[in-house]
């Protein structure tokens, strides 16, 4: 936490967020800030509530208490228009892609553009194809339906759709899960490149140690419903917390590091 540079703009902040299902408290007075232009990796054990926090921030789950601000807008106090404006400035990549199965690739990417922007059919086509090319897909896939795509292609199309409106903040839910190591590496690189070209802020829920090493500027660790540590990789490696030790300095972690050199 000492790593923070005072001048950086906070695009997302959660304060004292409590989320519980019945008696089971998942997030317990959680605080987290995400700064403009960074890639934040959010880690934690399975079932610790990483996805719960993401779903709470984007408004899919209700919270018991606390405050969430995105781009300085308090999402609870925001009017309908303010919420829509915020939603146009963020993009979300769901774990399984969540492509619309009855629309083809091009229509999937165009969907938010068609709904929110009043632009010509030609521009929509050109932008959608440009986005597909940006995520490394050949425009030949434009007519395909999600059921005809491989897992890696689904993730890429979903990323293109998440980026359709040129959002400032992108949520990625386990972007590399289900991809082979080479595909996962490529995807990491793609996220990094896009983040630099488009000036994105990335909030990434992940389990992939390689991704954490390769592209995250900062890592936040969730345990017991709270963020127990946030900082760069070096801070993670220096920590003596038993879970962190096991996670970042376990066998798989060492392999990930050796692979990196």
């Amino acid at each position: 936490m000492s790593m923070l540079q005072p001048a950086r703009e906070v695009v997302l902040s959660t304060r004292d967020v409590v989320v519980a299902f019945g008696e089971k408290v998942i997030l317990d007075h959680l605080n987290l800030d995400v700064y403009r232009g960074e890639v934040l990796g959010f880690v934690g054990g399975s079932g610790a509530g990483k996805s719960v926090l993401m779903r709470t921030i984007i408004g899919l789950l209700p919270k018991r208490q606390g405050k969430i601000e995105v781009f300085g807008v308090d999402l609870d106090a925001a009017t309908e228009e303010e919420l829509v404006a915020v939603e146009q400035r963020w993009g979300i990549l769901f774990q399984q892609g969540a492509l619309f199965s009855s629309l083809n690739v091009l229509q999937n990417v165009q969907f938010p553009i068609r709904e929110y922007l009043n632009v010509s059919e030609r521009l929509m086509d050109e932008i959608a194809v440009a986005k597909l090319e940006m995520v490394g897909l050949s425009p030949d896939v434009r007519e395909k339906y999600p059921s005809e795509l491989s897992g890696g292609m689904i993730k890429r199309v979903a990323l293109a759709r998440a980026l359709a409106l040129d959002p400032e903040l992108v949520f990625l839910d386990e972007p590399t899960s289900g991809l082979d190591p080479i595909g996962a590496g490529d995807f990491d690189e793609l996220i990094r490149t896009l983040q630099r070209t488009l000036g994105l802020t990335v909030y990434m829920v992940t389990h992939d140690l390689d991704s954490l090493h390769a592209i995250c500027d900062r890592i936040a660790v969730l345990a017991g419903g709270k963020v127990i540590l946030e900082g760069p990789m070096s801070a993670m490696l220096a920590s003596e917390h038993p879970w962190l030790k096991a996670y970042f300095r376990g066998k798989r972690a060492r392999m990930a590091m050796t692979a990196e050199g």
Binding site: E126, V129, A130, E133, M134, P139, R196, T197, L198, G199
Partner: peptide, 13 residues
């Protein structure tokens, strides 16, 4: 700041 994005679309479409 915008060189990346301009270069990116230069190869698009």
């Amino acid at each position: 700041d915008y060189r990346g994005i301009v270069d990116e679309v230069h190869g698009a479409n």
